[in-house]
Amino acid sequence: MQALKKKRILKKRIDISGIGLFLILALIVAVLSIITPYFLTVRNIFSILLSVAIIGVGGVGQTLVIVSGGLDLSVESVIACTSVFIGLLNKQGFPLIVSIFAGLLLGPFVGYINGVLIAKRKINAVITTLAMMSIVRGVGLLLTNAKTIAISRSDFGFIGRGYLFGSIPFAVIVLIFIYFLFYFVLNHTPFGRNVYAVGGNPIATRLAGIDVDKYRIMIYTIAGGLGSLSGILFASIVGAGLPYGASGYALDIIAAVILGGTSLAGGIGTVQGTLVGVLILGVLSNGLILLDISSFWQMVVRGIVLVIAVEFDQLKLTKRK
């Protein structure tokens, strides 16, 4: 009896982690560590984690949005514009904490507008966030006249480039903390459970007495906040406010989320899955760099992996039916 129970628990754990995906990651890691001995060193592992921090934090917000049945393309403009905000305020001589805080407000503000337009005005999420992507990008360019604004402060640089205990990048700690936090939120709070309900069947959820519109607005607002957090990491890593920066990140983020097993139809997905998705992309590009393969190949390989992963997911779905 006890053994049976244990077995069942084990089975459940494996189910949740999305074993197929994990296998793909393990396979890539195995192959790369055989080909290049440097790959599986502590230093390189941290450098991979650092390289995915920006996409990773944005991916958590995108996971919430996609699980709730939406999509957020505006995230890359939020990342760039946040870096611009911080750069400009810093240049004006504001204290660092004020500049960071102002940058952190931008995302939730943009997200809130996204949420209201999508939930209340019923405008399609792709169109709304595409428009917002253009607007926010434009604002960043207007504010800077399309010029890069350097942020040369070592205390700000610490966020994205500093190390704790000698070898652990601070940004990686932020990344891990965000994943733990949202794993907890999604699984152990009413808000988290309702995110799944809203995405699984908004009509039934509404009739069950849940204010679906309010949830949608909250979700986009939080995703915007995480976008700004990504933007802070971005500004710190590059050491500047870049009005043109982060372009194409929205697709990378969405690719990682889908790769992580989140369904575009809504209602299904986990942040741990997204982390695996983010890592697959990170490990792939790291490996290709170590193998000294052209970065153009990285784009090709990334696309192929995405198609394979989604195909895998489809297979699982049809099997279940």
Binding site: R193, A197, G200
Partner: peptide
């Protein structure tokens, strides 16, 4: 109901 969720989640929804 929400077909993608469990019996428990559906009963406790809301």
């Amino acid at each position: 109901m929400i077909l993608s969720l469990s019996v428990e989640e559906n009963i406790t929804l809301g």
